[in-house]
Design a binder for these strands. Structure first.
Lengths: 226, 226
DNA sequence: GAGTGGTCTAGACCACGGT
DNA sequence: CCGTGGTCTAGACCACTCA
């Protein structure tokens, strides 16, 4: 006898969908019917079906009932890794060095309003004695003025920001680009070689906090489940 | 007066966390206290807090209570776009052509067991008259034998597979690589140029279905929110 | 042992959206 | 109109884990 828990019910219904018990786009039984079939309350069945809807397997509409999604949404949970953790997960020592540090007005290529007082940083993240990633970053001093006095030999800019402004929101763009001379030298790859790049803009509420671009050597792969 | 719904409560508590009402790693009030503070039932408060825990903002443990996560997990919902949709979203006509099609035994670089009878395909996805992506794909005939007879001038391999085996799971790896001569010619970029690559392996239950590698021109960016 | 979250229940009312 | 999912409630028992 299967335990009547929302998770076991959810997995059982998932199997029935995968097995094709209800065709694509076809209406499946409602909460009340399924609840009585499984011998659980409607609340529990609701939770199981809600979870399947959240992951894009089914679609639910008031009055329209519950349907198997015709083309499932290929959604994935991607966890943006913290660089230190990635390095340490490979059993290597993490360190970072600041290569350039300047005080500049924001340029227009970032989401920080042009002219805003910023710190511009270039730093190299190391895994053992090998370069792991090169970073170019703008930090908005109007939003985090304390950043001006942070000792970046003690803590990386990224970690300081995460601890100071932990719950910011942002966007990410992934791309491939050809290494320019500076990036190529830092990552120890031939000039023009393909490098994986990740651009991140973050906000706290409506204030632009930081814009960072990370360059990874060609071996780097960002992996996740779907 | 704020309505007492799980979502409004969740957003209010999110604001209080962002405002720093409870320090990082510090224990916050339990469900019962918060429920009485908001004048809702414990069930409702549980749902609000569970949602915040799911998105990585708080950590919950039996007996240990609820705590603000010390370093928030940067998680993102990444929707893997269907190529046709990406092209059409840019207002361009989508088409695809098969460049090579062979029947081969699987090689060991994919997740399909070596020696399995496969179709190997190379195809070009077009946006208007421009190349949009080049695809190399293995399809396991032992898992989807009908694929042998599909007319790929009518429907792309990807779309046929999604409709036929809709609920497969898989993994994805993103990287930057240097275009080899064939890919460079197809994408109309200089040989050796950086191309964005996406490798996908998919399974239905435990059966390997298909392994695909997509190559995108250097302008391509994969964007998402965090 | 005891406190906290995890979960289930039975019942209720509401909101959306096809008919 | 009225069926369906969306949500809330009050109460209960359980399971984990810290002290």
């Amino acid at each position: 006898m299967t335990a009547v828990t929302h998770s076991s019910i959810r997995e059982d219904i998932r199997k029935r969908i995968v097995a094709g018990e209800w065709g694509l786009g076809e209406q499946m039984p409602g909460e009340i019917d399924l609840a009585s079939e499984y011998g659980c309350s409607r609340t529990t069945m609701n939770r199981a079906l809600r979870a399947l809807a959240d992951e894009g397997m089914i679609e639910r509409k008031r009055k329209g009932g519950t349907r198997v999604r015709p083309l499932p949404l290929p959604k994935a949970q991607l966890r943006i890794p913290i660089i230190r953790e990635q390095v340490e997960a490979r059993g290597l020592d993490y360190s970072s060095k600041v290569i350039h540090r300047k005080r500049l007005s924001a340029k227009s290529q970032t989401h920080i309003p042009p002219g805003t007082d910023c710190i511009y940083l270039e730093s190299l993240h190391m895994a053992g004695s090998e370069p792991f990633a090169y970073e170019k970053r703008w930090v908005n001093l109007a939003a985090v003025s304390e950043f001006e006095h942070v000792d970046l030999s003690e803590i990386s800019a990224n970690e300081w920001l995460v601890r100071t402004v932990p719950f910011s929101r942002g966007n990410v763009a992934l791309a491939a680009s050809n290494a320019d001379a500076a990036v190529a030298e830092m990552l120890n790859v031939p000039c023009g070689n393909a490098v994986f790049t990740m651009q991140r803009n973050t906000w706290l509420e409506s204030a632009a906090i930081t814009a960072a671009t990370l360059f990874f050597p060609p071996e780097y792969r960002l992996e996740f489940e779907i």
